[in-house]
Design a protein around this nucleic acid. Structure first.
Lengths: 188, 188
DNA sequence: CCACTATACGGAACACTGTTCCGTTTATGC
DNA sequence: GCATAAACGGAACAGTGTTCCGTATAGTGG
């Protein structure tokens, strides 16, 4: 094994450019949505498009990289909320947080929904990290008898994402349709 | 007034080409979804792209034209269902029908959700025709006390559309998340 | 400190979109 | 038939994502 600790030399400028790209992408995505042209991101980072594609196989991977930390934070929030609130309340709070995350990222849900194979990495990332988080919340709430127990976490996650695309949520409230969906979860 | 009955001569070949375009578009959309390239549709119709754009200002208008008759039929179904079934049942049946319509048209909901201004005509068409249809169903069900009365028909329509994008619905059943949404409608 | 080489860079070039433009063809009315 | 306005075809334009490759350079062994 030549890989774990000591081996390949990563050129310093490469590392710098990668950081610059991530920062630039974050900025541009916030300003113009995830559909922003690759050239614009490269320019913002002060590099050529070739450099962008050297670091990421395609735009979608860049999007995934940019959102990874926030996705991790959102996933982690599930455990915290569960520790501090009753199960159903924790679930509602987490959904609200997730809703805000999706709504905040212009075009994120559009990308998720697009079906474009270029964005395959995105759903995989979201589902992989957030699926288990939501599952834990659903299990807790179901165990408490607050909600039905036959809901697929991934389907629900996808659905909430789909419904959250236009929620300015000035006050951070999830949109009415998400609420309706959550009402539908209640045990009867 | 030179417009009502006798005036402008519509060249026969123009009318033929328009029909050919609509037929071709229907075929291509079914095969490759509404995102199919304009050139492909023109070729299928045996005309040049210029001709396509002579008849439709942009691709979205063509999509709208292709789906208009089906949309009209779906809207009309609301009244029929309402005449033959109890309100809540009529509502559920209509939603199922609408779901199937959306799911059947590859990429339709994606286009709706895209926010792309090019597709402005599409939501306008759907909302304009189907909104009132759904409103009548909701009103009837709310009057019967079956569901809450504070639901915006357009929002619900949009939401169901958003949720229906991947529902093969082998058996014609709406997907589980749409069901959850409908459960949320129930008066409490 | 220098030369050398693998690494990384930049941006022109390619393939594919939607859409526009305009020279050519053709249906129609006389 | 002829003239003419309508309609056509497809080349051309603008804007994507992505690839390619000649050039520049960081790191290293002498």
């Amino acid at each position: 094994m030549t890989s774990t600790t000591e081996p390949r030399k990563v050129r310093a400028d490469a590392r710098q450019n990668l950081d610059a790209l991530l920062t630039a992408a974050r900025t541009v995505f916030a300003r113009a949505g995830v559909d922003a042209p690759a050239r614009e991101i490269a320019t913002e980072a002060g590099v050529g498009v070739g450099t962008l594609y050297r670091h990421f196989p395609n735009r979608a991977e860049l999007v995934a990289a940019v959102f990874t930390s926030e996705i991790d934070a959102t996933a982690a929030a599930a455990g915290e909320l569960l520790a501090e609130h009753p199960p159903k309340e924790a679930l509602d709070l987490w959904i609200t947080r997730f809703t805000r995350f999706v709504a905040t990222k212009q075009g994120l849900s559009a990308a998720l929904r697009s079906g474009d194979p270029a964005f395959d990495a995105l759903p995989a990332l979201l589902m992989g990290k957030l699926g288990p988080a939501l599952a834990s919340l659903l299990d807790a709430a179901a165990a408490a008898g607050d909600i039905r127990d036959d809901v697929d976490p991934l389907e629900l996650l996808q659905a909430v994402g789909d419904l959250s695309h236009r929620a300015p949520s000035a006050d951070g409230t999830p949109n009415p349709m998400v609420r309706l969906l959550l009402d539908g979860l209640r045990a009867r």
